[in-house]
Write a protein that binds this DNA or RNA. Structure first.
Length: 119
RNA sequence: AGAGCAGGAGGAGUGGUCGCCCGCCGGGAUAUGCAGUCCCAGACGGGAGGAAAGUCCGAGCUCAGCAGGGCAAGGCGGUCGCCAGCAGCGACUGGGGGAAACCCCAAGGAAAGUGCCACAGAAAGGGAAACCGUCCCGGCUUUGUCGGGACAAGGGUGAAAAGGUGAGGUAAGAGCUCACCAGUUGGGGUGGCGACAUCUCAAGCUUGGUAAACCCCGCCUUGAGCAAGGUCGAAUAGGUUCCGCCUUGAGAGGGGCCCCUUCGAAUCCCUUGGAAGCCUCAGGCCGAGAGGGAGGCGGAACGGGUUGAGACCGCAUGAGUCCGGCGGCAACGCCGGGUCUUAGAUGAAUGACCACAUUACACAGAACUCGGCUUACAACCUGCUCUGACA
RNA sequence: CGGGGCGUAGCGCAGUCCGGCUAGCGCACCUGCUUUGGGAGCAGGGAGUCGGAGGUUCAAAUCCUCUCGCCCCGA
């Protein structure tokens, strides 16, 4: 079965829900927060501050992160709300870096949730 | 060949696979149907820039305000022209730099007034000022020194010291006088639309700098901004408070629920009270008025709401651009022609990977629109300068 | 979209309005004295392209224009 397309996370309420209920993981290039949802599709919120760089650099980071999440989420059956906060070093990351980190985090997160739902 | 400076031009191409935004077509759901709304994994088309940037100016557009004039505040400042307009552009004038090509200039007024000009210097703007000096007179202890006076030449100080050179003149000097030169003001001639240039006459002989100091003169400026503003809609959220006015009726029909038809169609109740009038012995008829509540309409004030109830319009063809002709030194204008014109989001779209050309690499990402200015920049093209090599 | 502020020694600030004075103050730093040694104290000293570029002026941290970076506020 093919998943419905990725949507944007919007509003302070949704973001805070992910920050409070979800779990987080920090890596060299960004911080990622995640929680499960039951909406039938995945949602992604990106926070790329103006401090990180000019518009072209910020767009580049956003698009790479979006592409990385899109690739990984297709491999998983559950639905997630994700928030990724970029760091100053994000501009040095490549797509492969992002994919590797997000995949490891999400696979681990999914495994833990599977254990909980079984137990 | 390399480097530097200035200008021009600035397209990361083609083909695949996956993905995003918009438009349109198609399919599905709701409905008798249409419209509308929602869903789609389908097809087709389109999808950042010369600076999209900085937000430094100017406009369009929208709302609010506005009789006219003045003050205040701010901006602009050679002339003529161009432009919708500008602090923009073109040509010219004047000034400055340079050997030259050429480049640069916020370029009205300091003889309206006020302020300021540190330090140094005798004196810094008062026709002022005597430090070293020059000259004259007088005293004394006579190669000198002291006192009084004249002098703006020379020295010295300073960013700047009150025209320059020569002659006359004098005790010594001085625009004190004269000639020439420079400059100022005024008059006149010639050229130019004009800024101005040039020639000439006269005057007093000379009047420092600073207005990116206050200021004066001339010209310009209403304010806020697309979160402007408009239309439609929902509600445990059609709010609260105050003021004014209104609240008379049994009932019937139609439809998509609020309108139509109709004299009347959202719409009254409780308590108190018992005016006037009428009948009347009592009393009654009638139901004004007052208070409270509820409702309707209008107005004012205050909230709630950005912590997602909004959607749509504004919102994409414009003072556009290219070609040709004509006018103009040019900026630009006029005329004709062009199957030249295609982003439009709203948690916000252009991405990823592969292949191919020796290789993909500057600055950089639309948010109401347009005209400028400024700043950033790889390879490429043009010009100039420098260095090196060869002939 | 609109408005405001800051940038001066390693750090925190003054001076800027109204131009000129050796660009100053505190902490820190260095040297010496003092002490058995350290601290404190005393004396002396070093360190500044005044964010950058250009302009006005005799003269600019200060005035004007452009520009870079940082911070804050309102709708």
């Amino acid at each position: 079965m093919r998943k419905k397309p990725l949507r944007s996370l919007s509003g302070r309420r949704d973001f805070e829900l992910v920050f409070e209920e979800g779990i987080s993981s920090a890596s060299q290039h960004f911080v990622i927060y995640a929680r499960l949802n039951d909406l039938g599709f995945d949602r992604l919120g990106l926070s790329v501050s103006k401090k990180i760089g000019a518009a072209v650099i910020r767009n580049r980071i956003r698009r790479l992160l979006k592409e990385a999440v899109r690739k990984i989420v297709g491999e998983l059956s559950l639905n997630y709300d994700l928030v990724i906060v970029a760091k100053r070093s994000s501009k040095e990351g490549t797509l492969d870096d992002f994919v590797r980190v997000i995949r490891r985090f999400l696979f681990k997160f999914t495994r833990e949730n599977a254990v909980i739902s079984q137990g």
